[in-house]
Design a binder for these strands. Structure first.
Lengths: 305, 305
DNA sequence: CAAAGCCATTACTGTTCGGCATGACCTTGG
DNA sequence: CCAAGGTCATGCCGAACAGTAATGGCTTTG
């Protein structure tokens, strides 16, 4: 490993200024120091990073290849610094956080319980929203944090932590459902089943449809349509209907033996979540700390799964 | 900036082993060196990163907050090394690369032209596919690289370069279209216009619909439906229809004054692309070099825009 | 109460990194 | 044709840093 943070900064500046000397000036270094840093990099990699000419330097293909990694390194190191700085403040105030239903129960409540152990004076306001409206409320200043599925490429919104966490969406049926008795269940079989689903057009139903359309099938229109998780679960429990739910929302029923996953691999969907915040302005220390509790809780939740 | 690569590696190992001494052993260092590294980090940030107890250390919230950044740093540094190693090989062979239509013309052809200057013996095979099939062909080994819109969270597929590039999809009309003469054009106005579009269900049309549904409007069903870019452009040029196209596909017509962007901000969509490769196995050196040429070309294309 | 395991501290050493002075090279202009 | 001004490269030196070894303090454990 030869590219460390300092040499990355040097590399970036050399590319930007097109000159080792000017890069040195911008970095408050002397030109020979820059020269040697670059030469060490080149020796380490065994390839030239710059073409030298009399007016300065121009990066080779190797130099340009390294550039995005160098930028990533310094920017992430800076983000780490910012985060710690944000966390270092006092720990009171209000944190307003929103998420889709499946993350609120286990993940967010667990994170808040953990945080309250060390910071009992912080108040929380929790908002449940569909994923497309979450980010709007974040942008409008209505929320401090939003736990939302990927992706949101938006200039006003930034990731609040670099790593994502996951959610397994699968088909579930009441354990009494005769479908579960078959030796092998195919996608065609479940396409002919009756379903209980959220309304058409919601992201999760669109994703559900894609599973079938990808195999050129058309499932039956859902027999029961509801925004309510309770209603959908009840439909699966009582009425031989199938539902397509994130595991956290049915974990209890599965553990009690009331619901069972329908074993069709094509119907399993690993949904990726990230935690977002507004790009402009600093987070409150409480929000920064909550992010860490979310992280920690997510780790603990994912391990036993 | 206090978190550099070495201290990041130390931090990671300390968290993993739960003990400074064992971390030192794993890193081929002595325990005091590790202790001092951690203490320097803590002094730099002004917060404790570990709670010490008699059985070892356990990370504080601050330590855990830093952990994902530390992991990111070392992993990206490693990726940079891998990339250079991959690029260092010989430069002949065949590269099979796929993309959606809008990236093939300007971006990919430009990148290949650039690459052929230095590596004239490499052969290219270019495949145009819709975005959902692209990644399947990549996974099956049919392609070496795929230039595809985000996101594809998939265990078999990895990013081939860390930064993304963009594409601006906008509505265009023939310059003779009377709509363009209005002082202000609203989303309601264009919802009442006639459109030429790709078939319903394609990702780009789904995105187009979302623009209107987000404001609770229903546009007219498209008058002309075709998969052919030529047909759609011709419809806009000749028949007062609107089309919704990525800028690269209409750049020439815009520069010749035949098509003009319809100035409705809600209809502009910044599409994000990334270059993907299979996760398993190494890339060929030729593919690694092509990635850099794509990067370089994308930069040059985005600047004048 | 002794043993064992852990981290913290101190003193010492070797390597690395940056600064300074200088050299080699090319372009430019009189 | 030669001097001037720009570039990067090189060698030497001092300061800062990272690592080692030895030791001490602390807690748990038998």
């Amino acid at each position: 490993m030869t590219l460390d943070l300092r040499s990355a900064a040097v590399l970036i500046e050399c590319v930007r200024r097109g000159s080792l000397g000017r890069a040195a000036a911008a970095l408050n270094m002397t030109q020979p120091a820059v020269t040697r840093t670059i030469k060490l990099l080149e020796a380490g990699y065994g390839v030239p990073l710059f073409e030298r000419n009399t007016r300065g330097v121009v990066p080779t293909l190797y130099g340009e290849a390294l550039l995005p990694y160098a930028k990533l390194l310094v920017s992430e190191a800076g983000n780490a610094d910012d985060l710690i700085r944000q966390m270092r403040g006092a720990s009171r105030g209000v944190v307003r956080v929103g998420g889709v239903a499946s993350v609120l129960g286990g993940l967010l409540v667990g994170a808040i319980r953990q945080m309250r152990q060390h910071h009992p004076d912080v108040q929380f306001r929790i908002v449940e929203e569909l994923e497309d409206r979450l980010l709007d409320r974040l942008k409008s200043g209505d929320l401090d944090l939003a736990i939302s599925p990927e992706p949101y490429a938006d200039d006003e919104i930034a990731l609040a932590m670099p790593d994502a966490f996951h959610d397994i969406v699968s088909a579930y049926a009441g354990t009494g459902n005769p479908l579960l008795k078959r030796a092998r269940i195919s996608l065609e079989d479940v396409a002919r089943e009756d379903w209980a689903l959220p309304p058409a057009g919601t992201p999760i139903v669109r994703e559900w449809l894609r599973r079938f359309h990808g195999r050129a099938m058309e499932p039956k229109p859902p027999s029961i349509v509801s925004r309510s998780v309770q209603v959908i679960k009840a439909a699966a429990l009582a009425g031989d209907l199938l539902c397509w739910m994130p595991l956290p929302l049915v974990r209890e029923e599965v553990e009690r033996g009331e619901l069972a996953r329908v074993p069709v691999a094509e119907l399993d969907w690993t949904r990726t979540f990230r935690v977002y915040r507004r790009k402009k302005g600093l987070m409150s220390p409480s929000a920064a700390i909550l992010i860490q509790c979310i992280r920690r809780t997510a780790e603990h939740l994912e391990e036993p799964a």
